[in-house]
């Protein structure tokens, strides 16, 4: 399968994602420049971390109007796999593909640290290789990752089982002390109703090889490849 990794001015996790795709997974890769409209036949498009357009105005606010994102919105509407990581999650919320928004961390500081995440869904295309209640260790690196949704939206999100990852203690318990940024209900990642668009603040591409201190992130990449083989096969 072919992965696309989007590059905006200010993106910085594009090469890390690209490395995992080609060197660790051995899958095909296309970098998609922000001015591209053509998604070049990619089966899964990754919006990586960074500071698209310098985070001017709001995180993701300008990226939302870029030619590549307009194509991605259309791709997602037709069932294409779209995976937003960190800044990519912020962009997906700005487009409306995912509900809610990401506020400044409640601690008012940038947080770069390992987090434990409990898996709430093992039936999405992004998490098919995981088990519900698995605990993944994946780092975060953001100043604005405090997930917020108004009470009605949050209630719909929970009822529709759209929360995929929550910050948790190492034993898997979702407790306030494990919440690094103030996210409501400890939310670290969500999918859209259809399940083909995932947004998450933690960085799986930064823990996909033992040299990086962990390989839990690779389990997500492998899930996508497996799911796609299942769908395509």
């Amino acid at each position: 399968m072919k992965f696309g990794v989007v590059v905006f001015p200010g993106t910085y996790s594009d090469r890390d994602c690209g490395w995992v795709v080609t060197e660790v997974l051995g899958a095909e890769l296309e970098y998609l420049w922000h001015k591209d409209r053509d998604l070049k036949g990619c089966d899964c498009v990754i919006l990586p971390g960074g500071f698209s357009y310098g985070d001017h105005l709001r995180c993701g606010a300008i990226a939302r109007f870029s030619p590549v994102v307009e194509s991605i919105v259309n791709f997602a509407a037709h069932g294409g796999l779209v995976w937003g990581i960190c800044n990519g999650f912020q962009v997906l919320c700005e487009t409306g593909l995912l509900p809610g928004a990401l506020l400044r961390n409640d601690v008012c500081e940038f947080r770069c640290q390992w987090t434990d995440l409990v898996v709430e869904r093992d039936d999405t295309l992004f998490t098919s290789g995981l088990e519900r209640r698995d605990v993944l260790r994946i780092p975060i690196s953001h100043g604005e990752g405090n997930y917020f949704a108004d009470p009605a939206t949050l209630s719909r999100l929970e009822q529709a089982n759209q929360v995929v990852f929550r910050y948790c203690a190492p034993d898997g318990h979702v407790v306030p002390a494990a919440n690094p940024n103030g996210s409501i209900h400890n939310i670290a990642g969500i999918v859209n109703r259809e399940g083909n668009v995932l947004g998450m603040m933690p960085h799986p591409e930064r823990c996909a090889e033992p040299e990086l201190g962990g390989t839990d992130g690779l389990r997500l990449f492998k899930s996508v490849v497996q799911s796609f083989a299942g769908v395509a096969g």
Binding site: L57, R58, A61, F65, C93, E94, P99, G100, A101, L103, F148, A149, D150, T153
Partner: peptide, 8 residues
């Protein structure tokens, strides 16, 4: 359309 995010 741009200047504010009406969610927040």
């Amino acid at each position: 359309k741009l200047l504010a995010n009406h969610v927040i």
